[in-house]
């Protein structure tokens, strides 16, 4: 019984592990490469700063708040979206840089 449960759990983890995808969004010319994106719960988005200036990635959507601080040129920062909902993400330095993520 114990064994079966462990296997089931492991299977469950593997399944969700296999489903959780990683998406890449580029920050270029003071814009995110996408304006909108639909991702699955548990997916990770990798924000890559391909600009020559510092950016930031944050959200103040309720229930989904995060802030990745200063993001130097050439660096990347990852965030995992663990709850469903509409998450408005932007750069706190250049707030015209916006992307809306639909987490389903």
């Amino acid at each position: 019984m114990k064994f079966a449960l462990a296997t089931l759990l492991a299977a469950g983890f593997m399944a969700s592990g296999a489903l959780a995808a990683e998406h890449t969004v580029s920050q270029e010319r003071k814009k995110f490469s996408e304006r909108k994106m639909t991702i699955a719960v548990g997916d990770t988005v990798n924000f890559v700063n391909n600009d020559k200036i510092t950016h930031n990635v944050y959200s103040s959507s309720s229930g989904h708040k995060f802030d990745m601080g200063a993001q130097a040129p050439g660096t990347a920062a990852k965030h995992t979206f663990s709850k469903p909902g509409k998450v408005k993400v932007r750069c706190a330095i250049h707030p015209k840089m916006k992307i809306t993520l639909k987490v389903e």
């Binding site: 003071k30 510092t54 930031n56 601080g69 200063a70 706190a92 330095i93 250049h94 707030p95 015209k96």
Partner: peptide
């Protein structure tokens, strides 16, 4: 550009720096 910049005025208000404490340029 709806963005935030230090244009070098000499008062001690740190502006957006109070919101984004760790970012030098803010």
């Amino acid at each position: 550009d709806d963005s935030f910049h230090d244009i070098g005025l000499s008062d001690d208000d740190i502006g957006r720096g109070a919101v984004l404490k760790t970012i030098v340029k803010m």
